[in-house]
Design a protein around this nucleic acid. Structure first.
Lengths: 230, 230
DNA sequence: CGCCCACTTGATAACGTTCAATATACGTGG
DNA sequence: CCACGTATATTGAACGTTATCAAGTGGGCG
């Protein structure tokens, strides 16, 4: 975890690092198999997770339902919404094989205390998460079904690009039902819109494997249908 | 501001407080008239604001539109989504006369450094804000128009109660257009649903002044119409 | 092979938007 | 104080989009 520490809190001196070695050594990179539970709503809060690669679904508990509110992609920090309470407020489940760095509560407290750089790093991540949520609110408030589906495709597409996947063919690892839940639609609607994009030649759909052939057109659709930019 | 400091970071020693007096003295309680700009998207980030009383509207900038994404009520901390960039990512405008505590960037950095209690306080506020956003996502994704309007009424109603307003009569300080923007509806729809609630006797509507007569019924509507709990 | 599940496709209905006409409130100047 | 104009709110009718219901397809697996 030395590289991690260097990248997000390089301001910790060698001496501090040795002094806190025992606590810091608890930070670990974990690999989760598909559909594994990373943390569950109601469980005791024991730290935050930085998604390193893969993809996870975050569910918010409302009453007795778990609602799919967020897709966690590499770079995202998960679990922050539970900092204030002793228990996790949401459930995080890996959609595919996912690597995440676990920062246990005590390490979190330590790093926040001794490293301005870490504080700034975490603030940045959190503020980005809030901005992302705000954006999702805009999508759900204003965008029509077509724009929502286009938005999701572009979002997943971009994540693949960022991860270095030069190819634009991608296995979604989300069922139609999951896509619909995330976008606030019915799965039949998602199916129809995918078909439409397919007919227009913007994508090639084959079950869960989708190839984005014309991202510019999808962006256009996002913008044109009262949707905020993608 | 002594009381404020005591309540949110009572762990700062007297000596520290004297030592940092000059910086800490910059924290101030400001009163904003209705429709005043508290901060504007694009402006240099100069700190966060804790809403003390009143109400403000937060607009997220997407492309060249400003979209009404959040209602800031007493206790909310605003501006956090801009911690990572040097500029404000959103615009905050007071809806009514609003008091807010301004914590300038340098005070923020100082408090985060010296006070675990403040770190915890801020983390709590931020995590609550994320949870609130998640909830809004659920509302927009699942709830029908009727449930959305009921949700907004209950939210504003609750804020009034919290502020000590024993009376359930309330001036909304939001136009139908603003309510509709927030809820992702058309203003005509909001108007119709208010009329419906009025006919059912759940509220008394008279322009912007609304009296909630039957909060339980509104809660019921929130739950029944595929809406997550209120 | 047959079952189950996820997905597709079609028909219909419900809901909300859109357009349009009217009404009410609010502020300004006579 | 009233008349006027503008902004905001209500209400109605027609339309469009999406949800809902239902039937059918195809792939994976025992």
């Amino acid at each position: 975890m030395i590289e991690l520490l260097d990248s997000i809190c390089g301001d910790i001196t060698k001496r501090e690092r040795e002094h806190f070695a025992r606590t810091l050594s608890k930070i670990q990179l974990t690999t989760f198999l598909p559909s594994a539970n990373i943390f569950a709503s109601g469980a005791p809060f024991n730290g935050i997770y930085l998604i390193k690669c893969g993809m996870a679904k975050s569910f918010t508990r409302i009453d007795d339902q778990e609602i799919f509110t967020m897709i966690a992609l590499p770079g995202d920090v998960m679990g922050c919404e539970s900092l204030h309470s002793g228990i996790y407020e949401s459930t995080l489940t890996s959609a595919v094989e996912t690597e995440a760095i676990w920062i246990p509560t005590e390490c979190l407290a330590l790093l926040l205390r001794v490293s301005p750089q870490f504080r700034s790093y975490l603030n940045g991540k959190i503020s980005r998460a809030i901005a992302e949520n705000d954006f999702m609110i805009c999508v759900l408030a204003k965008a029509k079904a077509e724009a929502r589906v286009a938005y999701l495709l572009l979002k997943l597409f971009k994540a693949t690009q960022d991860a270095g996947g030069g190819n634009n063919r991608k296995c979604l690892s989300l069922s139609r039902v999951e896509m619909a839940d995330y976008l606030g639609l019915q799965f039949e609607t998602v199916s129809r819109k995918l078909r439409l994009f397919s007919k227009l030649g913007h994508v090639r759909v084959s079950g869960k494997t989708i190839q984005v052939r014309n991202p510019a057109a999808l962006k256009q659709i996002c913008h044109s249908l009262a949707a905020p930019g993608c």
